[in-house]
Each structure stands twice: as structure tokens, then as C-alpha cells.
Write a protein that binds this DNA or RNA. Sequence first.
RNA 1: GGGUCGGUGCCCGAGUGGUUAAUGGGGGCGGACUGUAAAUCCGCUGACUACGUCUACGUUGGUUCGAAUCCAACCCGGCCCA
Length: 410
Amino acid sequence: MSAPTSASNSTSFDWLYRGTTEIFPDQPESEDPSQNLTQRLIQSDRPLRVKLGIDPTGTDIHLGHSIPVRKLRAFQDAGHTAVLIIGDFTARIGDPTGKSEVRKQLTEAQVKQNAQTYLEQLRPVLDFDTPGRLEIRYNSEWLSKLDLSKILELLASMTVGQMLAKEGFAERFGQESPIYLHEFLYPLMQGYDSVAVQADVELGGTDQKFNLAVGRDLQRLFNQTPQFGLLTPILIGTDGVQKMSKSLGNYVGLSEDALTMYSKLEKTPDDQLITYFELLTNLPLDTLPENPRDRQKQLALEVVTQFHGADAATQAQKDAQNLVAGATGAADNVPEFSLSTVEFPVPIFYLVSASGLCKSSGDARRQIQGGGVKLDGEKVTDVNQKFAQADELTGRILQMGKKKFVRLIP
RNA sequence: GGGUCGGUGCCCGAGUGGUUAAUGGGGGCGGACUGUAAAUCCGCUGACUACGUCUACGUUGGUUCGAAUCCAACCCGGCCCA
């Protein structure tokens, strides 16, 4: 799984190959800088322009989205120019990749706002500060100006057969589900982005291969040196099975708070651990702890540090441990519930519901019957157990499950 | 516009006149267990201070002792034809 650090090109280009699935074109033995990216990096007398496009179609991005962005950062750190393209124009069409449905159209305002939050979330990942290392471009800048003759030129560069070879199209065509003509324009527009910014390299997930290849074709058409394509893996989600995606709920969002992030990463499935380290951190892979549990913790700590800083990360680790251990010891942070809001005598189930530990009194009854409610650490067994006076309860701690506590006050 | 199928609880999806608060799965919440808030196993999963009452099967009416189930109109969606 880890990138082979072969003897020939070791040391200096580890950053390039770490977590890289494929680079094309790629002729390892060749010294031709148009066929071998490391040769290009060595021989070039200027920083390369490394393109990554993001379509601001939603509001949140997750660790899966951050993979190619991290690679972009690696290029920045090696002295190259990151060209981050905000696909404000393309977002309104939607990339058919991997989608069985036509994406719903977004309004201009939505797209604009999404773009803002995206940049905000990417701030910890990219180098925004070093002069000359980051160029942010909106592709409406050139795409909205294309006139019909130019569009025809783009369209004429490709055949229907080639287009239908693309994964998403092939499936949909086979299933006789609709493919709208404007969707054919998407790969061409993304490719044209490469022309517009004169990209030397374009990054993308493995599902982007087709689109990156179109970029090469179009650059050739416009007499530019075709870009290299560099593909990064699709990150598996926290469930360890399916790709990370918001709709599957197996994601870790870049804007999540430290504790949430830590808690999710701390239980990364064992067989995904190395991959996560490889793709989400820069830690050397041969010095990881032996114990898988320790690996999980280190991974969580490391990634949270990237987004929230070291202090917040260690705090999150502590908080997470306390939560699991049971928080009765750390009684300081327990919310309070005033008994003055209930009428006595009060049955225990009502108390559990009224204090907000359960969403309804029916739920409270069931939880008590299921053995999930404790008073001062002692399991409550009788749903209808009654308390006549407030002082019977004052100062005691009511607990629901492992994580929800309430201190009863007058 | 015509035809046809369908709209069920957080989601998916059974149920086609009477123990139906409504099978099953997912998700969620508890319990046990564990290196984990993982995996596995078990329980719960409409509301109400509750042996009863109320609200629920797209909407509104109707038939019936009784309907999510039958009828009518309307709204929304899929597919087919134009």
C-alpha cells in the first residue's frame, strides 16, 4: 500500500509518489520531460503550474476531498505554483462522473457562497501565505465568455463514441436513462480550464482520469504542452467499506470540531489505518506504533492537529477518553437541571424526560426498562419509582447511557 | 395531452376492509462484551406524569358497525405513448 521508495529516484521525490495512484504519461526510464514527470520537475527552469479544480456544489467538504488538495500542497512545498480552480461555472452543470442522476442545477448565489466556505475549509491544508505559491481562479472567468464558434471547436475535438466511453455515461446509456447533451460539455469545459491556466500538471481523484485526459487533448489542440495527470486514490470512509461521502455518513468533515473529528478518526478500521496515515499525514510509515489502538490514536491526534492545532488536538484526546471512561469523575461539565420545574411527587420516568435526557417520556420508560438509566451510578429498575420531595434528589446525578448526564439542583 | 404504476412511521419497504401503533431491513438509542463510541450478540425505536387517552399510512370528502386497505375529486412522482 505504501509508495515504494525505489532506489533510483528515492529521497527527493518521495512526496510526489506518496499516496499517488497513477501519473500519466509515465515512462520511468525516459529522460524526456514530456513523458516523465520527475524529469520534468528536475529539468524545468520555472515553477510548474499545478492545477486542481473543485466544484463548489455543496457546503461541506471532507477528508476525502482533501486528498488531492494535500498533494497540491506538497507541490507548493516543493516550490511550485498551485492553481486552484473554483468551478463556479461548471458547478452549475455538474460532473456526470459516478452520478446516475443528472445533478440539480445550482443558482449563481449558492455557488458563490459555497465557494467561500470551501476556501475557508481548505485554509489549513493549503499554503495561502507564501507569495507566488497559490493562484485562485474562477472558471466562469473564461468559460462564460466562450462563444459558439469556440464551443464548436471544442465539441469537434471529440467523438460521441469517445464521450460514451466515459464511465458514468456508459452506464447510463446502457440503462437507457437520460443523458442530456449539455453534460457532454462538462469534460470539455474542465479540459478547457487546463488550457486557460496553462497547466503543467493536473491533480484529481482516480475517477477524474477521463477529464484529465481531455485536458491533455485540448491543450494539444491549442498548441500547448499537454499536462501531466496525477491521480490520487478515493478515500474509504470511516466504515472501512465504501468511499467517503456525505450521503453515506461515513465522512469526517474538514469543518468539524476537534472532538468530533478525533472521535471519528480514533476508530478508523485497522485495515485502513496505513492508508489513512499515508494519505492524510506526512508521518513516516515505518515508525508507526505496533499496537493498532495506539495507531488509531496517533492518527486521530495528527489529523486533528492539522486542522485545529496541537493544543486542541490533545484536549480532544482527553475529552474523548473522559467520555468513554464515564464522566462522573469530571463532574464539572455536567449540565444542571432545576427540580423547581417539576411537580412533586414525581415519577422517575418523568424526571428523565423532563430533564432532556430522553426525547419523550415514552422513550424514558423504555430506556429505564432497558437498563440505561442510572441515579448516582445505580441502575434504576422501576419506571414508576416516585420521589415525594425535591431534597430527596437535590445534588444527585442522573445518567442516561454512557454519555448523557444531568445534575439535579433545587 | 393520453395511458399506466405509485405516494406508508427518520429512510427504504411489506401490508389491499376487522388484535394494525401497522411485518422486515437500514439508521438511531440502550445493554453485554472489547484495545475502541469498531466488530459481534441482545433489547428498544409515535405522543401523553400512561393499566387508559390521543395522533398516524399524499390531501379533502364519501361508503361502512369498522378502512392504510373500497369510492370520488385534487396534489405530487416514475415509466410508456404523443
